[in-house]
Design a protein around this nucleic acid. Structure first.
Length: 507
DNA sequence: CTCGGAACTA
DNA sequence: TAGTTCCGAG
């Protein structure tokens, strides 16, 4: 048992496997990596470098050694470790940075989504950098807000129903890097307190809710409500000041609010300091509010760029904000984006390329719109993959968040029936024609419906992502099944959705 | 170096 | 489940 107060960072419960699962408590490799990454003493061994979330293993052998020590696997070597790392590719936790030796990149989107499923992605209006990850704000601990446990990152059930924030014990990472504790011992350590907020609505501290068969689903709203809205005007920062009290000195990356409107998930190659965690400081703020915004942004990215939205699929409550075209900035003051990159539409996929863009304007629907083959529901198979690629057909090239998103073709999606959630003000004008690229939405819809259905049935576990339900009746039902209450959807979200609809419609 | 299948383990 | 170990292939 280490001293909770010790410097270093600790991951919240969700960073570990639930105790209910077999391998629970064993530190996972990516956690370990993150751990090393944030310790200065290991900067010579592994460090953030390059793109956001990208890190390079400077000393593979040493990293392997450390990992082996941690797992009590003296025979560990980089070859093995890298194999483990490669398994993360499919899980989308990591991906390889091609061309760069020993360089990998975290997919924080995934991590966040998975770990903050309950976050209401409503458009709260705050500027949100699309690819900006939670921003570190200095301090000594790697902190996460109280959040849901449940196993994360499990390819199959990673997104199981959200649960109450559990008062999670914050674990110390420091000192555990190379001990053979396996993280098991450290697991019991609870860092002093958990935010009181989290206790407000839950049964109490240590809510093992996640272990029960029926995970009580709570509405994001409910959850979020417990968090005071900082609403700290921080135009340049993706996230407000950390509630934990972050040094003002460490400011988050400067991201233009305009970005929030811009579908991007592009190569944003900020300085290494933009990495999720500052190498120097170890305060990684993950406050709900931040996460919310982050997710919000990410959602858009996903939607716009067809990133793997699988995460959303499991969360009916999360309505994917539809893409908003830059042309019509909602309420965000136009700012000169401090980005050096240019936002571009994703490259056309093979399929896309094949068909020359015909009258983009006239025909509308098929032209610049990512075509999704409306295949029989049967091949659902790997929805996630599909969702990710289908539209753009990135073909082989991964870089889902990079290359793929370089050339966004103005996504003009067909506007599904508007006013999904009932009344809503419509911020922007709307317009015109309708009917475009339904597929994508359809898919979401489908998925959504499915989830709704499952939920209704009191579904306990979901099927693995991959083997999905073979066939659902899925119709292209209107966006929001009238019957299904969209509880959980924040007003903001609703609005966003509507806006999208409108936009799509008219464009 | 990187990838990913396969068998195996905890 | 999350690797670990081994290994052939590119």
């Amino acid at each position: 048992m280490k001293t909770p107060a010790e410097p270093g960072f600790a991951f919240p419960d969700w960073a570990y496997k639930p105790e209910s699962s077999p391998g629970s408590r064993q530190i996972q490799l990516w956690h370990f990596i993150l751990e090393l990454l944030r310790k200065e003493e290991y900067h010579d061994v592994i460090a953030w470098q390059g793109d956001y979330g990208e890190f390079v293993i400077k000393d593979p052998d040493e990293v392997a050694r450390l990992w082996g020590a941690r797992k009590c696997k003296p025979q560990m070597n980089y070859d093995k470790l890298s194999r483990a790392l490669r398994y993360y590719y499919n899980k989308r936790i990591l991906h390889k940075t091609k061309g760069k030796r020993f360089t990998y990149k975290f997919n924080f989107n995934k991590l966040v989504l998975v770990n903050y499923p309950f976050i209401d992605m409503g458009m709260t209006g705050g500027p949100v950098p699309q690819s900006a990850p939670p921003v570190p704000s200095g301090g000594t601990h790697f902190r996460f807000p109280p959040c849901t446990p449940s196993d994360i990152l499990s390819p199959t059930e990673e997104l199981r129903s959200p649960t109450l924030f559990s008062s999670v014990a914050r674990r110390l990472a420091r000192g555990s890097v190379s001990d053979c504790s396996d993280g098991t011992s450290a697991n019991s350590e609870v860092e002093e307190s958990i935010s009181e907020e989290q206790h407000r609505r839950g049964p109490g501290p240590d809510i093992p809710a996640f272990r029960s068969p029926h995970l009580p689903r709570i509405t994001p709203d409910g959850i979020f409500r417990i968090y005071p809205r900082p609403r700290v005007p921080e135009p340049l920062s993706p996230f407000p000041v950390s509630p934990m009290g972050a040094p003002a000195g460490l400011l988050p990356p400067q991201l233009s609010p305009a970005l929030s409107m811009t579908p991007n998930h592009m190569n944003y190659t900020p300085s290494p300091t933009l990495s999720p965690m500052y190498p120097g400081s170890s305060h990684f703020s993950f406050n709900p509010e931040d996460m919310k915004r982050y997710l919000q942004a990410h959602t858009q990215s996903v939607y716009n760029y067809h990133l793997s939205p699988r995460a959303f699929l499991h969360y009916p409550s999360i309505v994917v904000p539809q893409p908003q075209r830059p042309e019509k900035p909602l309420h965000l003051p136009p700012e000169e984006p401090p980005f050096k990159f240019k936002l571009q539409p994703p490259p056309l996929g093979k399929k896309q390329r094949e068909r020359p863009l015909e009258a983009a304007s006239s025909t509308s629907s098929s032209s610049g719109v990512p075509q999704i083959k409306v295949e029989p529901i049967s091949d659902t198979e790997e929805d996630e993959e599909e969702l990710m690629v289908e539209v753009t057909d990135i073909s082989e090239e991964e870089e889902e968040d990079e290359e793929v998103f370089k050339a966004p073709s103005a996504p003009e999606q067909k506007a599904p029936p508007p006013a999904p959630f009932g009344r809503e003000e419509e911020p922007v004008h709307s317009g015109g024609e309708s009917g475009r690229c339904i597929p994508l939405k359809l898919r979401f819809k489908r998925r959504w419906s499915e989830d709704q259905r499952l939920e209704a049935e009191g579904v306990g576990g979901e099927e693995s992502d991959k083997k999905v339900r073979g066939n659902q009746e899925e119709l292209i039902l209107p966006p929001q099944p009238a019957g299904v209450p969209c509880r959980r959807v924040s007003t903001d979200l609703q609005r966003a959705t509507e806006e999208l609809s409108l936009e799509n419609r008219d464009s």
